[in-house]
Simulated scan of single mutants.
Amino acid sequence: MPDITKLPSKNSEVLVEIESAPTKLVSCTDWALNCSRNTIDVSTIGTEWKEYLPGQISADGSTNLIFDPTNDTVAAAIESAMFNGTKLKFHIRPAGSGTGKVEYTLEAYVTGWNTTAATEDAIKVAVTFQGAGPITKGTQA
């Protein structure tokens, strides 16, 4: 059985591009990047099995952050994108930063910026985003 490379999520990073510079979300507690392909039903009457064609691909994602009132630059960029309906470029680095490591990049609209607080918990911000084009997979220089 071949060896399987396993990565601890503690090394992963989420960055947003601010003025063409990827900036790390330093208070990130988790993230998700979701891709799905729709299918087109081309089944006809009189057949037992359904048939499909591949449809369009979409991507969305989320990240949860611990609220940091001193991190004005990143918070302002995300809030601005949310309230102004502008795209942000997200960089997801599953193995963290470093030459040759994988990076997924996508432009997306921020669809949610939800701040929550509870007794015996830190103030948190849940960010959701909807891809506005393809995800590119590359390696970091």
Rank of each mutant, 00 (worst) to 15 (best):
M1G: 15
P2E: 15
I4S: 02
T5Y: 07
L7H: 13
P8S: 08
V14K: 04
V14A: 04
L15R: 01
I18R: 11
E19L: 00
S20M: 04
S20I: 02
A21S: 02
L25H: 07
L25W: 07
V26L: 10
W31K: 09
W31P: 07
W31D: 04
A32V: 11
A32R: 14
L33H: 14
N34P: 02
S36Y: 08
R37T: 15
I40F: 14
I40K: 13
I40H: 13
V42H: 01
V42P: 08
T44N: 04
T44P: 02
G46I: 00
T47Q: 13
P54F: 12
G55Q: 08
G55D: 10
G55Y: 07
Q56S: 11
A59Y: 15
A59C: 14
D60S: 15
S62K: 01
T63M: 11
N64V: 12
L65Q: 04
P69I: 11
P69T: 09
T70S: 08
D72L: 08
A75Y: 08
A75M: 08
A76S: 14
A77T: 03
E79T: 05
M82W: 12
M82P: 03
F83D: 10
N84A: 15
K87I: 03
K87Y: 00
K87L: 09
L88H: 11
H91A: 05
I92S: 02
I92K: 05
R93Y: 00
R93G: 03
G96A: 09
G96R: 06
S97V: 13
S97W: 10
S97C: 09
S97I: 13
T99F: 10
T99D: 11
T99K: 09
G100E: 08
G100M: 02
E103M: 04
E103F: 04
Y104R: 09
Y104V: 03
T105Y: 08
T105P: 05
L106Q: 09
A108Q: 02
Y109K: 01
Y109M: 06
G112D: 14
W113N: 09
T115D: 13
A117C: 05
A117V: 13
T119N: 05
E120F: 09
A122S: 11
V125I: 09
T128N: 10
T128M: 06
F129T: 05
T139E: 15
Q140W: 00
A141F: 02
